[in-house]
Amino acid sequence: MTTQHTAQKAMLIATGLTAACALAACGGATSDDENGSNGNGDGRAESGSAAETGVSPLLLLGDSVAAGQALPLGQALAESGGYFIDETSTGGGNVLGPNAEAQWEDLPERLEAAADGVVVYQLTSYDWGTPDEQHDAYEALAEVTSEVNADLILVSMPPIEPDEFYADHMDELATAAEAAQNVAGEDEAVEFLDATAVWGATYSREHDGDIDRSDDGIHTCPQGAARFTSWLLDELSELYPGFQPADPDQWANTGWSSDETFTGCD
């Protein structure tokens, strides 16, 4: 995985040059818009009740792992009357570790979209650093979140099966959750959610016979992303009394599972 900002810009420029063809070609080949996963379309169907509970707008920060989870979450939140903003980033999204500086350059501005709502940061597989550095980064995130009058929810990352890329950083990743928990303990506007209930303590591709995780050992698969979404909505309903999550029947099979974000799942 690599930071893609430059590539994305270049792609956008090139796409502009070939707009007609690209639009025709890609309109049917991607499903983001259809899924409302980027905060568009269905994601804008915010209801007054969801906003009143404080759970909307909900902005998700994270890396490419979270990007997969954003797909059902966007659908589920929309069906629950919330406004979802996907600010995950493939190959990045981390608030410390490699290229975090790039994330911080415009993070405060991006978080403005979550004003009076919730920012969910799923700890990323790039959150490399000492416990103190992790603590400082999460604390800094809490500060910029509070500046837009939003709550911050820190969520532990799914355990991974490290390849060479991650092998040297597993000790650092192991301390991230505790650092996040400490920040939550020090700041009333910050909550920490341990997603071990969803993923287990160690990487497991299957859960009750279903494929939950990608065979790359890192990312999630649709069934796992759906289970995470259901769990997170339940947690939100506890944190925000009055918020009523939509039934999974309303969002689980709406087409998002065919998004090419999910790889290694068949």
Partner: peptide, 8 residues
């Protein structure tokens, strides 16, 4: 895409 088993 894969069918999500909402019962699980």
């Amino acid at each position: 895409g894969p069918q999500i088993d909402v019962t699980r």
